[in-house]
Amino acid sequence: MNINLAIAERARAGQLLTAAELDELWASDVLSLGMLAEEVRRTRFGSDVTYTRVVETGNPSGAVGTGVELRIGALPASLDEAAGVVVAARRLAGTQLLTGFSLADIIDRHWADLNEVLRRLQRAGLNAIAEAPVDRIADIAALKAAHDAGVPVRCLSLQRPVDGTRTGYVMTVRSLVQALPSLQTVAPLPREQSVAVPTTGYDDVKSVALARLGLPMVKNIQVDWTQYGPKLAQVALTFGANDLDRVSTIDDESLGRRRTAIEDVRRNIAAAGFIPVESIPS
């Protein structure tokens, strides 16, 4: 194995690796890094892979049935409109989990005092803020405000691609989780991709592995099934990811296929050697 064995030992023991150690892991060969991340993930968190079925507002054909999360994507221009969108979505969601928005977008709007904004959204019916991309918002006070307002952030994500090692990202996430341990889901792959210069396969799987190894206190390393596609998402499971987000509730029958999105995701999880477990959003 082409990897620093002392660092590997510390990772196996769930110890906090230093930035220098993470840099060294990043420079290891991709298979050694993946193998270590998979081993650590299996011993510490088992072989389950959870997945969440999500209906996005603006896509009304998705059925908001039991066990499905309804998620609002784009943030409207004003707080009144945002609250209105939440109220309408709540009607659609019934008693199901309703999430939405990026905490960074909310903060960028400077609508009013953040605590008030968040409480207003909560009163309108929002259960949680969908994500906080830590390259845009790494402010623990804001994350705590969301938590205290009853709309906790569900996922620490990354907005834009990063060049080189992901050590900086992992260290930032770590400090946030240490301050607010209820943050238990991290999505290390960027939400934005350049069409001309997308992140590479190596980039993606190494980012997943580094997040798994650098964040021993985090349970879920998440990959977006819809954005990254079945192939990369499945391979990411063997590099330490254990949670798949945004599984569609819509069955694509347009191509003459007889399969459903759920079947696809379960089959891919099982074929990677893991146990598929539907995560019931609450």
């Binding site: 079945p230 192939k231 990369l232 499945q234 391979v235 063997t238 191509l255 003459g256 296929r257 007889r258 399969r259 079947e263 696809d264 089959r267 891919n268 074929a271 990677a272």
Partner: peptide
């Protein structure tokens, strides 16, 4: 499999990335 007779008739999905 998309748009093929075999994919439609047998409901065959594409083999996975790991495969």
């Amino acid at each position: 499999p998309d748009h093929t007779e075999l994919g439609a008739a047998h409901g065959i999905s594409e083999a996975s990335g790991i495969e």
